[in-house]
Computed example of a mutant assay.
Amino acid sequence: MEEYAQIPIVCIVGPTAVGKTGLSLELSHRLDGEIISADSMQVYRGMDIGTAKLPFIEREGVPHYMIDVVDPTETFTAYDYARMARPIIRDIASRGKVPFMVGGTGLYFRSVLDDLDFTPATRDEALRSTLELETVEHGIQVLHEWLQQLDPVSAMRIHPNDQKRLIRALEINLLTGKPVAENHRSTNSLSPFVPLVIGLNMEREVLYARIDQRVDQMIDEGLLFEVQTLIKKGCTAQHTSMQAIGYKELVNYIEGHVSFSDAVIRIKQASRRYAKRQLSWFRADPRISWYNWPNDDKISVVSTILESINRDGIRKKPTYE
């Protein structure tokens, strides 16, 4: 890991719809930075509207990475993210630019910053076959209830219909005797980067209103058509990508399980719950400096952040550039 040592990186984290994208663009312009997305769903091609993927024309000339890297029928893990993102960060720094990692997927940040050990848990084909048979005989809900008892954190993150991930989580729990998260612990080696982590938050009522507004905007922009297009390309409810908020609810609508208005309500509810989980995850990280955004005076907040960045040795972009 020495090749990554001492590389400074600015991270911007926080709940969905809080304003991370806008701040990342402003700071990137000021610091001559390039942005690495840390969003577990923006990695998928064709999932643009529902993941709030910033259109190319709106990126203001700032290079963005880790967007559209796999097809939505493929599985993509935090290990894959770290393996792809670390060389990009090193390349950005080698060219004298400032790497920014921006997004709301906490495990993606940890996989890069904390040098997590992703040594796969032992696989047991007999156990997997037993779990698959259990699904056939008693239904997938039994697996989800079992996981809730063994590993409530994983059960909260995995959709009750995602058979592949449920079986894998149960396999890890039963083979190691530990929850999935405890199999992704930091190694004892030095962190490969020197991070300055900025956390954005705002009053809950304001955040929830922004989330609702964003969902309405996604619907207006054609989220339903995007989901229909993905289904035509072979995506099903069993693919990890289609478990994303906004996609799974509309799949339920398309399959006739709920009305369209109910699906939209569920998207908003799930988005608000997700924002709460994001905040819980990030608040546990003592490295994060929190800012009330954008309720505080924006100019003051940006100035304070820039001062913190400069103290950590990340240079400001010269005014003549």
Rank of each mutant, 00 (worst) to 15 (best):
M84P: 00
G106P: 02
Q6F: 13
G33K: 08
F76I: 05
I9C: 01
S271R: 01
D32K: 12
D162M: 04
Q269H: 11
E2Q: 14
Q42A: 13
V197G: 01
R185W: 08
A78I: 03
S40D: 03
K298I: 02
R311P: 01
T77H: 07
T240N: 04
E203F: 06
E3V: 07
V258G: 01
E60D: 13
K298R: 14
I7Q: 08
F260K: 11
V142L: 13
E182W: 09
E226C: 14
M101A: 06
I309L: 10
Q243F: 08
D297S: 10
A121H: 03
E125Q: 12
D312R: 15
S308M: 11
L224F: 10
L131H: 02
E182L: 15
G50M: 05
A275F: 11
N183L: 12
E145C: 06
E58Q: 13
G33C: 08
A237M: 14
D124K: 08
H64P: 04
G104I: 02
S28V: 04
Q213C: 13
I36K: 00
T73S: 07
S261L: 12
T240R: 04
T51V: 14
R110D: 12
K268W: 08
A169H: 05
D80C: 09
R90V: 09
I305N: 01
Q228G: 15
P152L: 11
A93I: 09
G19A: 09
C11Q: 01
G199R: 00
Y253S: 02
N310H: 11
T176F: 04
V197W: 00
M218A: 09
A17K: 01
P294A: 10
T236E: 11
E3G: 01
V136G: 04
I140G: 02
Y208M: 07
T304R: 12
V136F: 04
I172P: 02
V43L: 06
G103I: 02
D114L: 11
S271N: 12
L25R: 03
T21K: 04
G14L: 07
Q269K: 14
Y79A: 11
D32E: 11
L27M: 08
L127N: 02
S111N: 06
Y291V: 05
H159G: 02
L175Y: 04
S241R: 04
L131T: 00
D91M: 10
R272S: 11
A275R: 06
S191W: 12
Q163W: 07
I89C: 05
Q269L: 14
L306W: 02
R59C: 08
T176S: 11
S40V: 03
V251N: 08
V102M: 03
L131C: 05
I305W: 02
M1S: 14
F118Y: 10
E2W: 10
Q6T: 01
K97C: 10
S189A: 15
L175A: 07
T240L: 12
M242I: 02
S289F: 07
M156K: 15
N252S: 13
D297I: 11
L143H: 00
Y65E: 03
V62H: 06
F76W: 13
R123H: 12
K233W: 10
R315L: 14
D71M: 10
H239Q: 09
I36T: 02
E221A: 15
R311L: 15
S154Q: 09
L230Y: 07
A263Q: 01
T75Y: 12
D115H: 15
Y4R: 06
I267T: 01
R272V: 13
Y320V: 12
W281C: 00
L25Q: 06
A17T: 03
K248H: 14
